[in-house]
Amino acid sequence: MLTAVRSTFTPGLNTLPAAGTADDKIQAYNFRMTMTNSAKWRKPLPTTPPPGYDVADYEVLLRFMAANPTKVSFFDYFKADAFYTANGESKFDVNNRAGPAAPSTDFLGRNWDYPLASYSAREAIWKAHWNWIVGMLYLMQHGTDPRIPAALKTNCLSWGFVSDHYFSPHENDTVGMNPQMYVREALRLDGVAKLLGTELTRGDGGVPSISTNTVSMISYFMDSHAIQYIALEKTAGVWIVASEGGMAVDLGGSDGMFPLPLEVCTPKPGDCTNGFVSFGLSASHVAFGAGRMEFTAMQTGQSLGQIAAEAIKNNRTFQDPANYPAARTALLANAFALTNEPVPILAQTT
């Protein structure tokens, strides 16, 4: 569970590299679950633990419960947002409860091998993540450890999967299991240009340093879920368990948006001349954390499709600078709009 030690008081114990040191660790993955506390829709969770279950894996969670005996609600441990409500009963999207809160569904430190893993190894990582979450739910509903508040068990027992979701699972999946693990970050492009976090802190009215060939707008803060649990000597002789690597840093400017340039979606000519990358951007970990959200990715995909069409129509490489102006004009003119589709926002200053 713990993968490093950080101490300024006892330097000889320190194993955490200095801030800014490169590594191959990535922010945690989980599954977004569809759950409910409505008796009408609830499918009870398993009453037996998942394969590989070991209560010792949840020691950090149990210590948190012991230190916070008044946290006795499902919502104290999970981020649950209602996406459908009828007659006072709701179905919820259940995600990791981030920030200085309880250990939650993120499986910290167990996904680092995923980007370069084989398909079979990825399948094992995938299943381990699901079992981690199901094991956590089992512990909170049926665990016998005295540190689990009785009121929390009672509250959690009212929750289950939604009976009309994921009832016909993929091969190797189980009923109620979301068919997609939340891979927040994996491989990224090493492209024509690289977007850095320092670029995203520019104030209003600045011209982006990479280019004004905007294909989308970043409108999420520089975000990363935690990467690992560490032992931290908070004060001399006082040790705590801390999650390390999580962040939420605002973008520069009053509107909280930043132009995403074409070049960070474009491979180097020596690598590929007829393709773009719409999600795994050529960006640092920090900048990618801001550019990875759905609406940015949707507009990026639409823009890149239009630019690709210009390149193909004119028999140009995808790196040709002549592709962008015509594609931008077409996009802003909404020439290929779907019904009621808004005109894209493709600002060229911050």
Results as ranks from 00 to 15, higher is better:
E244R: 14
P50Q: 15
L260C: 01
A22M: 13
L45A: 01
T15C: 06
G280A: 14
F107V: 05
A231W: 15
N30L: 00
F64P: 01
Q348W: 00
H129V: 08
F83W: 10
G99M: 15
S90H: 07
E123V: 08
M181E: 01
Q299S: 00
T10A: 10
W159Q: 06
E59W: 10
E199R: 11
V264A: 04
E59R: 07
T70W: 04
M33G: 02
V192R: 02
L137D: 01
T339K: 15
L137T: 10
V94G: 05
P49K: 00
G275W: 05
D204C: 05
G291Q: 04
G206Y: 09
W130T: 06
A283N: 02
A82T: 10
G270H: 03
A337K: 14
V162C: 05
E244V: 04
F64W: 09
I133H: 08
F336I: 11
P169G: 15
I26H: 02
Y166N: 15
C272S: 13
Q27T: 11
N274S: 10
T201R: 02
G52N: 14
R97N: 11
P149R: 00
W239C: 02
T70H: 10
L195V: 03
R6W: 14
I230A: 12
L304K: 04
S243V: 05
R188N: 00
V162G: 07
N95E: 13
E341K: 13
E263G: 07
G252K: 05
V162N: 05
G256D: 13
M65W: 01
Y166L: 12
N323S: 07
Y166G: 12
G305P: 02
E233G: 09
S211D: 02
I210Y: 10
A330D: 04
Y53H: 03
A347D: 09
S284C: 00
T85D: 13
A28T: 12
F64A: 15
N274T: 12
S243D: 04
D173Q: 12
F107I: 12
T144L: 05
A297M: 11
P179I: 11
R110V: 07
R97K: 14
M247A: 11
